[in-house]
Design a protein around this nucleic acid. Structure first.
Lengths: 221, 221
DNA sequence: TAGATTGTTAATCGATTAACAATC
DNA sequence: TAGATTGTTAATCGATTAACAATC
């Protein structure tokens, strides 16, 4: 856990992890920075620097021990332990998260769902019980949950974030539009679908303009 | 549409758009880079540079005309027109997208859903009909759709991406794990929940380590 | 030893931002 | 004119990567 690890390095770690898992599954024992970098699509020097900042070393003339690097990157990303997750909002998005098959095997089991709707309270989604959001402050600490996912409306999100923080959650992933105000020690990441689509549409229009502007009206004044 | 607009600038545009919409709603006519930058949380010089690269100008001594900048940023992000969206996968995530209230008002109405499951075909979700994925190649061009969202399993995603490209889609937002192989002229963005949570957990562990390591076992060997 | 590959220095690249002349 | 604010230059900062000595 080094203060010096840059955001750019952190953003690449999940891709390294994926490639290392694949290599380990293929029983590859040792890998050079050149090969691993090619598989991830980065420069070998960048990869070596990234690993070095995490304190991960290889052997000159040989390469990196796959199991060792896999273990260390897993530790850095916290994937070597379980982070039980509370999802707030049991609408379609919340239910999609409870059903999402990629979470539990990667250490993020959805342990509990919360909603304000009494018709949903008491039901089960993918084996996860929906509780009333009023019980969040009681159940989240009891279940040892430190990760919260906000899958509510934008209006409800700030209140939910405050409740999660009060319940001791230290990381929040929010799908609600709009920024959240949380204390410094709480880490927030946001996924905003409309923002993603806007960025996508910027590049699409540029691509269309470059390749001859086919089809997409430019609407300039 | 300037080839010179950096990714970093593009990533900030949606936030500018949001702030400008708020200002326009409050009937603010003119805004300085200082004020707008404060509202977005960026440096004023960065904001001025971003606007300049888009060809957006202000008036020295006065500031920027809110309506004009709002219009130009909207055009750059393609928000001044409708981009009908096809969602492939009518599971919980696909249904969540069809129900997501932030898309249609921001120019991305979900126009059609596709699924392989015959039990879902013919049903409606939030007024959107679910069609069999076999009809994708026919319906997507007929509906003038150029944006596809992949909300299927990771296994199905590559085939779906290929079908979308064949149908003439030029932008794809994928929620499936794993990268997609598409032609150069197709723009892809991926949202990977497990990756988001891994990055979140990295920062959470670091935060925990900095503030005394309370609660989070480090599991070092 | 000869070949390979790391770890890291130093160069490069690109993005951010302070500063200020231009100008409303 | 005096004050304000842009547009842009030039400095700074940080990240990437070529290159190579260290070393297995």
């Amino acid at each position: 856990m080094d203060q010096l690890v840059s955001d750019a390095t952190v953003a690449r770690l999940p891709a390294y992890l994926r490639a290392l898992v694949d290599l380990a599954a293929d029983d590859v024992v040792s890998v050079s920075s050149g090969r691993l970098a090619r598989e991830v699509g980065v420069n070998p020097a960048t990869l070596r620097r990234d690993l070095a900042t995490l304190g991960i070393t290889g052997t000159r003339g040989v390469g990196y021990d796959v199991k060792y690097v896999l273990f260390e990157v897993s530790v850095a990303l916290g994937v070597n332990r379980e982070w039980p997750v509370a999802v707030v909002g049991a609408g379609n998005l919340g239910r999609a998260l409870a059903n999402y098959p990629g979470l539990a095997p990667r250490g993020f089991p959805v342990q509990v769902l919360f909603d304000v709707d009494d018709r949903l309270v008491g039901t089960e989604v993918a084996g996860v019980t929906v509780h009333h959001v009023d019980r969040l402050g009681e159940l989240v600490p009891a279940l040892g949950i430190t990760v919260g996912v906000i899958a509510t409306s934008a209006e409800a999100a700030p209140g939910v974030a405050a409740a999660l923080v009060d319940a001791g959650v230290s990381s929040i992933l929010s799908f609600a539009a709009g920024p959240l105000d949380v204390p410094d020690h709480v880490v927030v990441r946001r996924v905003d679908l409309a923002t993603e689509l806007q960025i996508l549409s910027f590049y699409t229009r540029r691509e269309a303009a470059v390749s001859g502007g086919a089809g997409v009206p430019l609407d300039e004044p």
